[in-house]
């Protein structure tokens, strides 16, 4: 009988601790999207407390799918310039080259990340662009690579009804990011040299 009681007590304690863990986890899970701006300061403070846990478990997400507004796409166009002067043009992502679809989305997310960065964060944008340039240089064995950031604007309903296509060239807004080259084979991305257009 006493054994049964001891076991029952132990179960209760386990459940109590488990309940506390669950409660903490739920607060953390809710705090991540709740703290995405605009958000109350309290949510931010709670998130600050639980962020290491969320970061560790890869749960620090806002779940703002297609929000607040589904926007235009971000692409990267590059031109790899070979040592002999040949030029190879490409775009990230590229439906024809990046297959299967999941791989295409992986590439697409790279460019979307660049597009999500505010223009005020110039250094970060440049750093990301430089990072993206490095594998392109390696992939093609190019001397240098010219990167452009392309915004593919959305067509309106009226434009489609008027007969325009989604791929209408006028909807692609191109901004050159720069030209990137390797100074040495072992050079890291952070030490890439940039040439402003």
């Amino acid at each position: 009988m006493s054994g049964s009681r001891t076991k029952s007590l132990a179960i209760r304690w386990v459940k109590l601790v488990g309940s506390c863990c669950i409660l903490f986890h739920l607060i953390a899970v809710a705090a991540a999207p709740a703290s995405v701006p605009p958000a109350p300061a309290t949510a931010g403070r709670v998130f600050a407390c639980v962020e290491p846990y969320l970061q560790f478990t890869f749960l620090n997400h806002g779940y703002h799918f297609f929000a607040p507004d589904p926007g235009s796409s971000s692409l990267i166009e590059y031109t790899a310039v070979m040592e002999n002067g040949d030029r190879i043009w490409g775009r990230i992502p590229d439906k024809s080259r990046h297959r299967p679809r999941l791989l295409y989305h992986r590439y697409f997310m790279l460019t979307e990340f660049l597009g999500s960065l505010p223009e005020s964060q110039v250094e970060l944008r440049q750093s990301v662009a430089g990072t993206y340039a490095l594998p392109l240089l390696e992939q093609y064995g190019a001397d240098k690579v010219e990167l452009s950031y392309v915004v593919h604007e959305l067509s309106t309903r009226e434009e489609i009804l008027a007969g325009r296509q989604l791929t209408d060239p006028s909807k692609y807004l191109v901004n050159q990011l720069g030209t990137y080259s390797l100074r040495s084979p072992t050079q890291s991305a952070s030490s890439l040299s940039t040439t402003d257009p």
Binding site: Y63, F66, P68, D69, P70, G71, S73, L154, R157, I160
Partner: peptide
Amino acid sequence: LSKLQGETWWNGTAIWNAIANYE
């Protein structure tokens, strides 16, 4: 909740924007 911040979700064009995204 996050969609409520977006104008397109209120004016009914958000789904069109998704449809019109070629990528």
